[in-house]
């Protein structure tokens, strides 16, 4: 993976997110306390927030360049984003949620995603009839089927209890193994980070404080 966040600046309510880093590991963990700016950073990469300064470059393609007033629309970035609240579409069933971003020529097939994430029994269920863990898997599958160049996951297991976390974690490992999509994985839990990530970036108060 090559994600360059060059002199990136995003003013937030109490501080500014300021990051200057190049991420190259297949899976990078973002670790840090609540309110450190981790979600805001993901939203910048996804194109949902516009930085006030700096550049974002993914695999050599410029997504944001504040100096040149360049901001690529979210739909043109090929950045998959699984937000903390999952944001599944409540008016669609699981199948329609999954297919929402799937184009016919996509290199990732629905059948494979359904198989890896064991989604077949859920496909015809409405979103509000899914459990927390099932929703997580549908949201993950939906992001994968859009064939992203990078997958951003914001504390995907935080709303699940310990038992469910242990059930969903193997699915994330399977995604990492089967799809080889670079990932940025935000979590509070060290065990998740250790299990999934090759590199860890610690963020506090909008600044990168440590890289390991």
């Amino acid at each position: 993976m090559s994600l360059v966040l060059e002199n990136l600046r995003l003013p937030l309510a109490d501080f500014a997110l300021e990051v200057n880093v190049e991420l190259a590991a297949p899976v990078t963990g973002l670790f840090g306390p609540s309110g450190a700016g981790k979600t805001s950073l993901l939203e910048v990469v996804a194109g949902l927030r516009r930085p006030s300064a700096g550049r974002v470059q993914l695999h050599g393609r410029v997504l944001d360049d504040a100096a040149a007033h360049r901001h690529l629309a979210p739909e043109k970035r090929h950045v998959g984003y699984v937000p903390q609240d999952l944001a599944l579409f409540p008016h669609l069933n699981a199948r329609a949620n999954l297919e929402f971003g799937h184009s016919p020529g996509s290199p990732i097939s629905s059948a494979k995603v359904v198989e890896i994430l064991e989604l077949a029994p859920l496909l015809d269920r409405r979103v509000h009839h899914l459990s927390g863990g099932e929703k997580q898997r549908v949201a993950l599958g939906r992001a994968l089927l859009a064939s992203p160049a990078i997958l951003l996951m914001d504390e995907p297991l935080s709303s699940l209890d310990q038992r469910l976390r242990q059930r969903v974690l193997p699915y994330l490992q399977a995604v990492r193994r089967e799809f080889s999509i670079p990932m940025i994985y935000v979590s509070h839990a060290r065990d998740e980070i250790e299990m999934l990530c090759d590199e860890v970036l610690e963020i506090a108060g909008g600044q990168c404080t440590r890289r390991s």
Binding site: P74, G80, Y81, A146
Partner: peptide, 21 residues
């Protein structure tokens, strides 16, 4: 929720398509 519209756009849909879907 504006958030749902934003997520729909990260899934490759343009603003007009997001409005309709």
């Amino acid at each position: 929720p504006v958030r749902l519209e934003g997520i729909a756009r990260t899934l490759g849909r343009g603003p007009w398509n997001v409005f309709w879907t």
